[in-house]
Amino acid sequence: MMIETTGRPFSRARHPAWVRLTHWTGAAATLALMVSGTAILLALPKLFWGETGSNSAPAWITLPLPVDLEQTGWARNLHFLAAWIFVLNGAAYLALALLRGHLRRRLLPAPAEIKPRALAGEIRDHLRLRCAAPPTGRYNALQKIAYLGVLLVLAPLILLTGLTMSPGVTAAWPELFTLFGGRQSARTIHFLSAFAMVAFLAIHIWQVLANRPVTLMRGMILGRAGNAEETR
């Protein structure tokens, strides 16, 4: 949510173009995945563990959603198109973030930041809604952990559980079934991790709206909130 800088104040910070491009491409793909994923779920709004599950088997959870069998056609088309965009865009972001040092310098928390006492202090401040941005405009430790968690844990988990529902992919990589404990388990984890992604996005968007939304949106769209030179 905060603009990355090389230690300058906010007004002189700038997001590099590749961050902005992959951010909004990923945002559009994620929105399409959420809408189409919900539509696919309506065909069987129940979750199961193990290999098998259907209307004739006991469900772990029955979601409070209407049953609609007619939405999977367009929804599957959109889901897989958006998934390709999400994955290729995410891979490009990850590669650039690694190559350009963005991951190490901007996202990796410093050892001092993740000491229990420092983290507890940040969590306390956030809970009291006193989470002023660090004066330098760097990401705070909770942001770094959230972004790295989405990038390195949540998104790969969503991708892999999605692939575990593919009969073609699992014929080549049956280990995926072992990893997640079966096709229905993978479907359940796919839903739970997508739900966690929605929760992350809700907080992410709320934080933007609660902290200078115009400046932050300008920063992620135009790159500049002031007239600073580009950072890596």
């Binding site: 696919i40 779920l41 065909a43 069987l44 290999e51 098998t52 599950g53 259907s54 209307n55 069998l69 999977t72 599957r76 529902m165 009969p167 096709r183 229905q184 479907r187």
Partner: peptide, 12 residues
């Protein structure tokens, strides 16, 4: 084998 339906259900 595992039968996987596009509706989301699966059965063996």
């Amino acid at each position: 084998t595992l039968h996987s339906c596009e509706q989301g259900w699966s059965a063996i």
